[in-house]
């Protein structure tokens, strides 16, 4: 059974003459241990798809389940609880909290009400595994881009979610750091990973690639075609 299952998602943005359908009857199923890359040009709705899958945005219609729990139709607190337990986000701009050290940023989700126990231990393990122990007490502005993104990945993983949603995870990194981050995302056993990107190298790590174009999601077997901006 897929850990992430989306059926017939429709999502429009804008109003009146500016209205545009960015997701048009999109369906997607992602299994555990699977890495799915959603590719497409800028502005095609990749990030919107990711936000909808993560419960950050609501589809106009359709149904999503994550870890067996229905996401669509839930509101506020219920959605937050599903995100807390089942979903981890990785953002292009890392989105680390400036006032907190790298370690504290990783610990943030473990301190949220309803977070599973053992968060501090997992945070320590993740920081160690990701090679961040030496810089764990540095503030984000004292870290390199690659280190910041690794802390962001650790934060996404700290509550042991089943689904990782990554939005252009290497978009702000140089090639060397991008390779390290991609290596991490490609090796997250027991989890389903969805990456949206317009970079061929990033999409290359995926076990399955999908292309989003004009709101329609299709299988994409071409490893390099049509990925440029």
């Amino acid at each position: 059974m897929p850990v992430l299952h989306a059926e017939r998602l429709v999502k429009s943005v804008g109003e009146g003459r500016a209205a545009r359908t960015v997701l048009d009857d999109v369906s997607l199923a992602v299994e555990t241990d699977e890495v799915v890359a959603v590719i497409g040009r800028s502005g095609t709705g990749k990030s919107t798809l990711l936000h909808v899958l993560g419960g950050l945005d609501a589809p106009d219609s359709g149904r999503i389940t994550v870890g067996g729990e229905r996401l669509t139709g839930r509101r506020g607190g219920a959605l937050a609880r599903i995100r807390l337990r089942h979903i981890g986000f990785v953002f292009q701009q890392f989105q680390l909290i400036e006032e907190l050290t790298g370690r504290e940023n990783v610990l943030v989700p473990t301190r949220l009400p309803g977070a599973p126990g053992g968060g501090a231990r997992r945070a320590a393990e993740l920081i160690d595994e990701l090679g961040l122990s030496d810089v764990a007490d540095h503030r984000p502005h004292e870290l390199s881009g690659g280190e910041q993104q690794r802390f962001a990945i650790a934060r996404a993983l700290v509550n042991d979610p089943q689904v990782i949603l990554a939005d252009e995870p290497t978009g702000s990194l140089d090639a060397a750091n991008a390779a390290v981050v991609l290596g991490l995302l490609a090796n997250l056993p027991g989890r389903a990973v969805v990456i949206v990107t317009h970079e061929p190298d990033t999409a290359a790590i995926a076990s399955r690639r999908l292309a989003l174009d004009d709101g329609v999601l299709r299988e994409n077997s071409n490893r390099s075609a049509d990925l440029s901006v």
């Binding site: 993560g54 950050l56 506020g76 607190g77 937050a80 609880r81 599903i82 995100r83 807390l84 337990r85 979903i87 986000f89 953002f91 989105q95 909290i97 400036e98 943030v108 989700p109 949220l112 009400p113 309803g114 977070a115 934060r155 509550n159």
Partner: peptide
């Protein structure tokens, strides 16, 4: 806003924002 949004993306509900 971004910090609050990140927290909410991580699973923070209204109670966490109040905290």
């Amino acid at each position: 806003r971004r910090t609050v949004a990140v927290l909410r993306a991580c699973g923070a509900g209204a109670g966490a924002v109040r905290r």
